[in-house]
Simulated assay, not measured.
Amino acid sequence: MSISNRLAELGITLPQAMAPVANYVPVSITGQLVTVSGQLPAMDGKVAVTGKLGAAVSLEEGRHAARLCLINLLAQLQAALPGGLDSITQVVRLGGFIACTPEFTQHAVVMNGASDLAVAVFGDTGRHARSTIGVASLPLDAAVEVEGQFYIG
């Protein structure tokens, strides 16, 4: 089954890939390794989930934010890869940054919003290594940011 069909089954329509907000490229391709810069939980061109986990942002809102970040990663890949998402043969690594209070400890639960979607979209090739880090703040007051590395074949 194609990735487009899986996305459709999941009810996901990829947005247009967002332009970078600073001096960097959204996608870097080196041989068969593709690195996607951190993506924010944006919808309709603006950050949809802002604030900090452990304060105004609930755990479920954080999971939703991580899922939106992965959707935006997929949009960047779709725009950058000549073969689109079907050329991805492995999700290698996801890195999550969670804006949170010092007492917050549920980072992994938040990041599962992105990880669970990666597996739902790519199946076993969506299983990946990952890091999840709590931070004091993120660009545009985003609650979550997710970056990724992918292998294309």
Rank of each mutant, 00 (worst) to 15 (best):
F97H: 15
L68Q: 11
A79E: 14
L40Y: 09
G126Q: 02
A143L: 02
G84C: 14
D44M: 05
R6N: 09
V110Q: 11
D44A: 08
A108K: 15
R63G: 10
I29M: 09
L81N: 10
G62R: 06
Q149F: 02
N23F: 04
L53C: 14
G134Q: 03
T132S: 10
M43F: 05
F122N: 01
D44I: 00
Q90A: 15
R93W: 03
L33V: 12
A79S: 15
R67T: 10
H128T: 03
Q39S: 09
A48F: 14
S37C: 07
Q32V: 04
V49G: 11
A22W: 09
K52Q: 11
I29Y: 04
P26D: 08
A22G: 11
A8K: 06
I29R: 13
E61Q: 15
I3N: 01
D44C: 02
I71F: 09
T132G: 05
A79L: 07
V27E: 10
V110Y: 09
P41L: 11
V144S: 05
E145S: 14
V27Y: 07
C100K: 15
P139N: 00
A55Q: 13
S4C: 00
T35Y: 00
F97K: 15
E103Y: 02
A65S: 08
G123M: 10
A66W: 10
S137N: 00
P20H: 01
P41F: 13
V47N: 03
G148F: 03
V27R: 08
D116F: 00
S58D: 11
N5E: 13
A55M: 03
